[in-house]
Amino acid sequence: MMKSATKSDMIRVTCKINGKEYSGLAEPRTLFVHFIRDELNLTGTHIGCDTGHCGACTIFMNGKSVKSCMVLAIQAQGADITTVEGLADGDKLHPIQEAFWENHGLQCGYCTPGMLISGLFLLQRNPDPTEDEIRRGIEGNLCRCTGYVNIVKSIKAAAKKMQSEGGKSARSM
């Protein structure tokens, strides 16, 4: 059945985020990043530009890394989402988060939520990437602090951790 909504309708959008069902109201024009931050109060995902360039808003949507400022909330109806809040297992950080911590992969931390997701998307496809492949994997994520060197190092270290920990941490997003 076709779905439709007129300009000022508030539509109920329901989706699974970090394994839990969330539901909230959005206009057709509401961007998904505004919906998760302002309506669902999941503020881990950042907004750096909202023109699709900085990557701070990157999330997993149905298994793919996506800039959430470039998707409408209404398009996420029924989607399976992972944000930075979904990476840690309770108090135990995800290996990629540990790796960023241990290798000074962040300074102000603004770009970090997006960097982590882009890093993970890369590692799911390519568990042992070269430095060039890592740099290519984070092309869509800008960092104004680190100069990227320690971010690349962190992702490299995360690859090692995730490989030695085997399947557990390589759980699909």
């Binding site: 076709m2 439709s4 909504a5 007129t6 300009k7 057709p28 024009r29 961007l31």
Partner: peptide, 9 residues
């Protein structure tokens, strides 16, 4: 934010 629009799927 974009201007308001109707949405069809």
């Amino acid at each position: 934010t974009p201007k308001k629009f109707d949405y069809y799927s």
